[in-house]
Design a protein around this nucleic acid. Structure first.
Lengths: 124, 124, 124, 124
DNA sequence: GTGGTCTAGACCACC
DNA sequence: GTGGTCTAGACCACC
């Protein structure tokens, strides 16, 4: 599981970490029960501050993607333990991206094919 | 074309304005050639600073969604005049939202049906 | 609205700030729409770091007690805008405290009278 | 007397153990004079470190809820042997929870009814 | 060893 | 002026 950060991005680093871990879980590169790297270790790997990684982990925890077991650190939650709530922000964000693709000239079919492809990346 | 702002949101106001105009264009509620309201007028309507609307319009111009004409103000660009480039951020954002939906428990089919529905909203 | 911190307490400072603001809102000492002090100002007043106050404000925001308007800072949310959800932790915490009182020798009636008194402090 | 731990909780394990024993005593599921399980046995049952259980028992002893007898292990103290002091933390915690309930939209009467119900659970 | 908290101070985006 | 982000580094509670 490799994380790539863009330090020039407007997206805060802790958000980028959070986003890539979410994509990693959905894509099966991070399995339920699997341990995430220790905050300190990941921070050193990425060349960022411990607090930044910590904030990402706390976000993931609040959202229910991971659980912090005091004994074993932070780990991916089993699917069925995750609360099946679709945040409004997710729906709004999806609509926005689809609109942007449409305005970039992609046809309805091209867009749907892209979505299918992305869904299939998410093998688990 | 009505814009609704959420002042409690983490998304900056100028971004919200930009996003809703993009969705408005894709959905056909704003037609190519149509004039956007004057900066000052929209700012007053929304109860925000003129600078905020100005920043949103500037973004839309940079992205090629609208064109500024000194005489006629800001107007929606014709489709074929828009550069068919898909920003990396759009693709990344789409993937993120699809992953979030997947982790919220939606099946591949439910997600694709949602995408189709959203694409069909974008009549023009 | 005066906050008193106990630096020797096991309760984290940001929690203490959060708790006292919650009690302040319920007690009517902080009214809906009222602005909380700026993070920097409160931090200086309390002699703590800006981040500590910031974390308390973010918690309050997540819980729906306050809203951060980019124009006017952080303010108490109107009652009816607050989501009527009772966190499990609140119920569990209440039961624990009632048990502790019982074991401290207070009778059922004394405890209930105390609860009534506390509820009546919360004028609004 | 069954203890259920939540390893994902922010409440430390030893606190959870302590809290549930306090609730157990108040609720009459643990009677005065009754022996608590041996540290090692309980630790094994719960799947936690011996030190964790030990710390919980030590807390309970300091607070006067249980007494440690070298021969008979740790046992629940008789009611009248317990010091009738209400810790400041208990009062503060009670007020906090009542305020949270109030802000969650419960009426004064609903809250008091909930308190009564909880007090009546505590049969002994 | 693990995450959680806190400081002092800087920089930045938004308004 | 406002909150949000980030660093470097320290200390601590929990396990």
């Amino acid at each position: 599981m490799l994380l790539t950060l863009d330090f020039d991005s407007e997206v805060p680093i802790y958000q980028q970490i959070r986003n890539q871990i979410v994509v990693g879980i959905a894509g099966g590169r991070l399995s339920p029960g699997e341990r995430l790297p220790a905050t300190r270790a990941l921070a050193e790997d990425l060349g960022v501050n411990t607090m930044t990684v910590s904030k990402a982990y706390q976000l993931l925890r609040q959202e229910g993607y991971v659980a912090a077991d005091r004994r074993a650190g932070v780990m991916v939650r089993p699917r069925d333990a995750q609360v099946p709530v679709v945040p409004e922000e997710t729906v709004r964000g999806l609509r926005l991206r689809l609109c942007e693709l449409r305005l970039a000239g992609l046809s309805r079919e091209e867009i749907l094919r892209l979505c299918e492809k992305m869904c299939d990346e998410e093998v688990d």
